[in-house]
Each structure stands twice: as C-alpha cells, then as structure tokens.
Write a protein that binds this DNA or RNA. Structure first.
Lengths: 106, 106
DNA sequence: CTACTATTTGGCAAAAATGCCAAATACAAT
DNA sequence: ATTGTATTTGGCATTTTTGCCAAATAGTAG
C-alpha cells in the first residue's frame, strides 16, 4: 500500500475514532443547537468535568470542534456543519441493521 | 440522560468505533468495488490473515459488511451502500481541517 | 480417510483508551 | 494579593483494542 493512501486512511480513522464514543456523540448532539461551555456539557454528559474536558480535547484534536474562551469559561462549537451528516450516515446503517435484526444494543 | 438516548448513542458509537481503524477503512474501500474474499483483503491490508479476519468480524458485528461462503472461501461485501457516504462526510471534515491547518497526519 | 487450502478462534503480550482524583492553570472580582 | 469559579493537565488503575502465533474448524480434492 502506498504511503499517501496509508496517510489518508489514518487521517480518516482518527476522525472516526474520535466519534466512536457515546459521550463524545452526546457532546456533538448538544453542540448541534449552538455553542456550549464545558460546565453545560459536563452536566449533559454526567461524567466528571475532567473526563468531559478530555473528550473535548479529543474532538478538538481532530478538528471536529472549535473552542474559544469568554471570561473564565470556554465555549465549544461544532467546527463544520457537515459533521452532522455523520449522524444521518450512521442512522441509515442502524436502520438497515434493524431490518436484518442485527442488534447493536447490548 | 434517558435510557433510550443512551442506547441510541451507544449503538451509533459502536458503528463509528468499528470505522475508526485504518485497516478496516481500507477493507471497506476495497469492498466498494465489489465483494472480495478474505485472502484478497488480507493481501490488500498486509497484516496477518488472522488479524484481517478479526477486523472483518468487527465490521460484521456492527452490520457494516455481510459475508457468505462459496467453496472454501468466504466473501465479504458492503452491507448497505450508504456506508460509503461516511467517506464523503469524513473527507469534508479533513478538507476543513486542512484549511485551518489542523494536521491529522502524524 | 488424507492431504490441502481457506478462514476463524484462542491465547497472550503490548499498546491505547477510559475515567476518576488531585493538582495546576486561567480568569474575574474583591 | 486573595479568594472563588471554570477548565485543563498529570497521574494512575482499569479496561479495551490490537496483532501475532498456534491451533481449530470448514470445505475441496484425490
């Protein structure tokens, strides 16, 4: 496999891996309606604030969200609207699974 | 957070997690042109056949691919065409990253 | 049945991800 | 400067993922 293809696949995988966690998906859903600060997201997720902060770092590191400080709080927002297309893509796979009785809920 | 939402997020995360590995993305790309047997995919990936077999299990377990045996080989195919939409989604995020100089290649 | 090819599974060690607490940092207000 | 609130980082234990080898299983052919 050539190096360019390898790099491209790794870049894609990094983004998808960042999406592969329920809390991080929840965060993106919360941000879909507009920017939110860490405290708000922490409340929505229900984990320790340090845990949520690290999830946010994961999302930021692959360019899925942006952040900016206002006063002493940090607000996160979805980086590009197209991120939300993921949900449609995933949902159609889940739909197909249901019809084929592949249960993803464990 | 209500249980239904939690379940939905976990189902989505499971699919995205399965997509979060370069070899598994390569496999899906290979399958985009039509079904292939394990040996062919193993050659494309370049890992041990047992490793590739486990990657294929991951993809099958979340309903991204189907398999069927013909003779003594097993052929894999993409389960639903919409899976390929993922690549477009990811690519648009990568594009945005490049413009903002977030490098995903390490 | 035996030999052969193709694939999967078990087992294991190494690596990465997860989530908490405690400590550090950033900023605001007094 | 000190205190208080908001967020991030360090450290660490636990869990999960990864990838190889060896062994088991599935099927074909002689």
């Amino acid at each position: 496999m050539d190096q360019a293809r390898q790099n491209r696949l790794e870049a894609r995988a990094r983004i998808l891996k960042a999406l592969g966690h329920p809390s991080r998906l929840l965060i993106l859903e919360e941000l879909a309606t507009g920017e939110k600060c860490v405290a708000e997201l922490t409340k929505a997720v229900g984990s320790d604030v340090s845990t949520v902060s690290k999830h946010l770092s994961s999302l930021r590191n692959v360019g899925l969200v942006h952040d900016h400080r206002r006063g002493n709080q940090v607000f996160y927002q979805i980086a590009t609207p197209c991120v939300l297309n993921f949900f449609n893509c995933v949902e159609s796979v889940i739909e197909a699974n249901i019809q084929q009785q592949i249960l993803l809920i464990k």
